[in-house]
Computed example of a mutant assay.
Amino acid sequence: MKNFNFVLGVDVSKKTLDICCCRLGLHIRVDNNDKGFMAFKKWSKENHIDLVRTLVVMEYTGGYEYCFLQYCESISLDYCRVPGLEIKCSTGMARGKSDRTDSYRIGRYGEEKLDILAPAKPLNKAILLLKQYLSFRKRLVRENAGLKSTIKERKHMYGSKDTEPIVAICLKKIAANERDILKIEKQIISMIESNEEMRQNYQLLTSIKGVGNINAWMAMAYTENFESFTDARKYAVAVGVIPFEHTSGTSIKGRKRVSHIANKEVKQELNQAAKSAMVHDPQIRAYAERKLRDKAYPLVLNNVKFKLILRMFAVVKRKQKYVENYIKAA
């Protein structure tokens, strides 16, 4: 593992970067653009910070950090991104908040956890684009759901017809959004077909009953084509499928429960996959019927979601499509 002499905490915002070196007690604020990156490089040189032996630590911001990440890769500067909640929970009691203070706390976290932090892999542009497509598609789907709800309410309360102005506008927007959703889906399929590894994993995932296009795309996007998650159980924890113990001493003896610190969008899509598998997959249907005799439906649904995740990772690992009756086929 590479040894680092310096750790820089970076608080990223839309227009600026606050960079702190706790070890030297230094701080600088630069613009989040090429001009600011050059100022950062000059500042590092003036303070004898060897960027070759430096690790940059920052939070996930949902996109504001991508320009800086591309710059880091261009000069071979190692970096890693950490969830903001993890850093917040590690700092203990904290009062007040500012960008400068946040960069110091991120840098201090990086120095304390240096032995377990690993530099991130280079950005995968195909995965980044896939996430953007899925995010925008979700936005259109939600907008359509709101418009359909508006139409339903107006027809219920006022007896509106399709020719009524508000209803007509909503119907027009729904039709336009549906055309745009199809365009986005075609772009996703085209991008996947042009990438051999993604195309192979997509075909493997969709061979599983219950796992359709959306679930396959979501799994590929948030596992970075099954490179950032190599273990099904770890991915299940990130999605919010694995239950955790909830006990303390002799007073608290709660049931095991899933954590709300999870990727809710992926979990929501897995709900639909699990319901479909419980109908169309004979093995899962028999499993669910057996469990439902003495278990609640949400618990059984959660178990089915975990089974689907196990199958996803299994087919990708073996590079073989899912076989419905594996023992009989063998």
Score class of each variant (00 low, 15 high):
residue 86 E to Q: 07
residue 102 D to L: 04
residue 67 C to I: 04
residue 107 G to T: 00
residue 58 M to A: 04
residue 75 I to G: 01
residue 83 P to A: 06
residue 32 N to Q: 06
residue 115 D to T: 15
residue 103 S to T: 07
residue 102 D to E: 07
residue 117 L to T: 04
residue 75 I to C: 05
residue 78 D to K: 08
residue 109 Y to K: 06
residue 105 R to T: 00
residue 120 A to F: 13
residue 113 K to P: 01
residue 84 G to L: 06
residue 92 G to H: 09
residue 37 F to G: 02
residue 70 Q to F: 13
residue 99 D to E: 04
residue 122 P to K: 03
residue 81 R to Q: 14
residue 31 D to W: 00
residue 77 L to I: 08
residue 57 V to T: 02
residue 107 G to D: 07
residue 60 Y to L: 05
residue 57 V to M: 08
residue 115 D to P: 02
residue 89 C to D: 09
residue 69 L to Q: 13
residue 59 E to H: 02
residue 103 S to K: 08
residue 58 M to L: 13
residue 90 S to N: 04
residue 118 A to N: 15
residue 62 G to F: 15
residue 122 P to Q: 08
residue 117 L to K: 05
residue 55 L to T: 08
residue 77 L to F: 01
residue 45 K to T: 14
residue 64 Y to L: 13
residue 99 D to C: 11
residue 50 D to I: 10
residue 38 M to I: 12
residue 30 V to F: 03
residue 112 E to R: 15
residue 34 D to T: 12
residue 98 S to F: 02
residue 46 E to K: 14
residue 120 A to W: 15
residue 80 C to R: 10
residue 34 D to S: 12
residue 85 L to N: 06
residue 66 Y to N: 03
residue 55 L to Y: 07
residue 42 K to W: 07
residue 72 C to P: 05
residue 119 P to I: 12
residue 39 A to M: 10
residue 55 L to W: 06
residue 47 N to C: 05
residue 62 G to H: 11
residue 74 S to Q: 13
residue 42 K to R: 15
residue 113 K to C: 03
